[in-house]
Each structure stands twice: as C-alpha cells, then as structure tokens.
C-alpha cells in the first residue's frame, strides 16, 4: 500500500498496554475525500487508534501516515492540516470561547479568523462564555469550530456525539456533513450511532477486539450483505451451512427458522443454502448497517469460539 495514495493510512498499527493488545496490526486505508465511519464496540480500540493517528499516543509498532506524511517523523507538518474533534471538549476550561479561538489562531498557520467568526455566529456560541460552562452540545460545536477554522484536509472525530440528545446529535451530524461538502476534505468519524454513520459515510471500517475485520465502501457492504431466511424441512447443523460457503458470516435460529447472513451475496449461494436445508421457502432481506455490523461481529465471535 502506497501511503501517498490515501489521506489516512496505517501499516500494521499495534498498541500494547502491558500484556493487553488494544490495537493489533490495523491497516487503515482512508481514500482522499472519503467520509469514513470507524465502528466498533466499546473497548474495541477505536479511541486508541485515533489517538495514535493524531500522534497523541505512540504506537508499540507500525506506522501512521496523514496525507502521505509519517506522523512519527514530521508530527508538526502532519498535524497542521488535521482537525480533531474529541469525544468531549478538551479545550482549556478556564478560558473563554474567544480566548480559545485566539489561542488556536496563534498556533495554526492557516487559521482563518473570518471562518472562525462566521462559524461562531452560525453555531450560536457566546464568545464570552467560559468553556467549562458550555453545554455538551455547544461544547461539541466549539470543538468542531476549532477543528474546521483552519480549513483542514483531514477531519477526525472521535465519538463526538457521545452524550448528546438526539436533536443536538442530528444538528451536529448535519454540520459535519455540510463541512465536508463545503470543502473537499477527508472525514474519519467514530460513533456508536450507526444510523448516523450509515447516513453520513461512504466508507466503513469495523474494528473488533483491536483488529480491523472489515474495510470498504458502505454501499458495497450494504449491497452485498443480505439475510437469507430458510425454513428447513429437516434440522441442519451450523457447520454444514458454513461449509457451503465461506461468505456465511452469521447464523441465527428462531424456532424452525434459520436466518443466515451472507457477505458477498449471490443468488447461486442462496439457492445452494435452500437446497442443502431442504427449505421450500427462501426469503432474502437487505440489512441496515446496525444489523450488518452486529452480524459480522457475532459471526467473528462464533468463528473464534
């Protein structure tokens, strides 16, 4: 993989905390201009990966390239075109909003005071308010303002809507989408809200127990992952179904019905499942991102166990 081809790329990125491996050989490849959803369960290693992407945490091994620049060797240059929105505001709580903006203005070489003041008005943030006194929603908007006002090429958001009410969350996602449309930039966003991720992203990466178990286009995943519902005449073992195709990622049973989640769905595979199960019926259904993610993760866990 040539790191210069991607906005964000990591090569065998690993981070260990003592005996525990939090991130294990992750190879992210985020194309330029993509909106990349970074999904995983709690403790999957998303935040650790994001902290390594930003140089906040040194990896145990592996490398990170932002816009082709290795962050370990040229951290200042790599970070100068990156905007970061953390899960909760980390700007100086004792500063006023205006002071934080002035501080960032002094630090970022490409800071645009015009853009900052227009975003300040747009987000309706009081510049005299203390950062510690801002509500969660306004704090998240301030983080977004600080991340966008130097017109970054890469925007990294680490569960930015955590703890926000549904309206504030919607507003926030709309702002992120608008920001990604206003200027050609790459967005990497990790979130628990898979509905929002499905709505906003065009690329996805699933992280599970520190490993990247899926990476690709959102429409490809949702277009090729299907649920096949069978009603077998005679009982059939999970192993027998799995033997039929390597694309069987998850099997669920409900009474006599068997639901098989297929990656890389093809009618031929579905038909072979129907035949093997002696099922007179064959129902094929699309999956939401939420279901696809759950089935892939459960399938991984079933395979591992």
């Amino acid at each position: 993989m040539n790191p210069t081809e991607f906005a964000i790329s990591t090569d065998l990125l690993t981070r260990r905390f003592g005996q525990r491996t939090a991130v294990n050989g992750v190879g992210l490849a985020v194309p330029r201009g993509a909106i990349y959803g970074f999904i995983g369960l709690n403790g999957a290693g998303k935040s650790t990966t994001i902290r390594m992407l930003l140089g906040l945490l040194a990896p145990s091994s592996g490398s990170v390239h932002l816009n082709g620049i290795n962050i370990a060797f040229e951290p200042v240059r790599a970070k100068s075109r990156v905007g970061y929105v953390p899960d909760r505001p980390t700007a100086y709580p004792w500063m006023r909003v205006q002071e934080v903006i002035q501080f960032c203005e002094g630090v970022f070489p490409d800071w645009s005071p015009t853009l900052a003041s227009s975003l300040l008005k747009k987000y309706r943030i009081d510049p005299r308010a203390k950062v510690s006194k801002l509500s969660k929603g306004t704090g998240a908007k301030l983080s977004l303002l600080l991340a966008l006002s130097h017109d970054p090429q890469i925007l990294i958001l680490d569960e930015p809507t955590d703890g926000l009410d549904p309206i504030a969350r919607d507003e926030f996602f709309e702002e992120v989408l608008r920001a990604s449309l206003d200027s050609p930039r790459t967005v990497l966003i990790s979130s628990h809200s898979l509905q929002d991720i499905q709505r906003a992203t065009d690329h996805l990466g699933f992280l599970h127990e520190g490993r990247l178990i899926y990476q690709g286009r959102t429409d490809e995943l949702l277009g090729t992952t299907k649920r096949v519902r069978l009603l077998p005449d005679t009982p059939i073992e999970d192993a027998a179904l799995r033997r039929l195709s390597p694309d069987v990622s998850h099997i669920a049973r409900e009474g006599r019905a068997v639901t098989v989640t297929l990656r890389n769905f093809s009618p031929a595979v579905a038909e072979s499942l129907r035949t093997a199960a002696h099922s007179p019926n064959l129902d094929i259904a699309d999956l939401s991102l939420d279901d696809a993610f759950k089935d892939i993760v459960k399938g991984m866990e079933a395979t591992c166990s």
Partner: peptide, 8 residues
C-alpha cells in the same frame, strides 16, 4: 490532549 493535537 488538546495541546498534543495541535501542530506544535
């Protein structure tokens, strides 16, 4: 964390 993410 805020400081570390800045290009400084």
């Amino acid at each position: 964390e805020f400081l570390g993410a800045l290009p400084v």
